[in-house]
């Protein structure tokens, strides 16, 4: 009887909970995400045409500049405002990765540079690194076995 009551209640909560405005959120994410990627594209053009970087170097150059921008905007307290507007639009690009590292670093500074900043630096980005690196190793091995 109690289990049934719980199920009914959860069903009611599911039905009545205010819903996210998915279409609007997707549009915002598309807009901001697209804008960030366009900025990345501009940086890449600068790298290739103005700085004459090779194809390989320009990828690293673009990533470095975008991470720098993401980290700086986090540091001066702007990236979280972009994030609350754009959602996944600012989480998915590499600037979001920078944000997820700088944010805990700032937050845990009062606990010191070792157990605070050092230990908590990757508390959010850690899973991305673990599974990102693991899967690239896996893909690398597969490419080696099946050339």
């Amino acid at each position: 009887m109690n289990q049934q009551k719980g199920r009914d209640y959860r069903e009611l909560v599911k039905q009545r909970s205010p819903k996210s405005k998915t279409v609007l959120m997707c549009f915002k994410a598309f807009l901001v995400g697209g804008l960030i990627c366009s900025i990345g594209q501009v940086v890449q053009f600068i790298g290739t045409s103005a700085l004459n970087l090779s194809e390989e170097d320009v990828a690293a150059f673009t990533a470095i500049v975008m991470v720098f921008l993401g980290a700086t905007l986090t540091g001066i307290g702007i990236y979280d405002k972009i994030g609350s507007f754009a959602g996944a639009g600012s989480v998915v690009p590499i600037t979001g990765f920078a944000n997820s590292i700088v944010a805990p670093a700032m937050e845990h500074k009062p606990e010191g540079y070792v157990m605070g900043v050092g230990a908590k630096l990757f508390s959010l980005a850690g899973p991305v690194l673990v599974y990102g690196i693991s899967s690239s190793i896996l893909v690398g091995l597969l490419a080696l076995i099946f050339p």
């Binding site: 909970s17 819903k19 979280d80 972009i82 507007f85 989480v91 944000n99 997820s100 944010a103 805990p104």
Partner: peptide, 10 residues
């Protein structure tokens, strides 16, 4: 963390 850019569900 506060500076983490995320959205809140309604």
């Amino acid at each position: 963390p506060l500076e983490m850019g995320t959205t809140n569900p309604p």
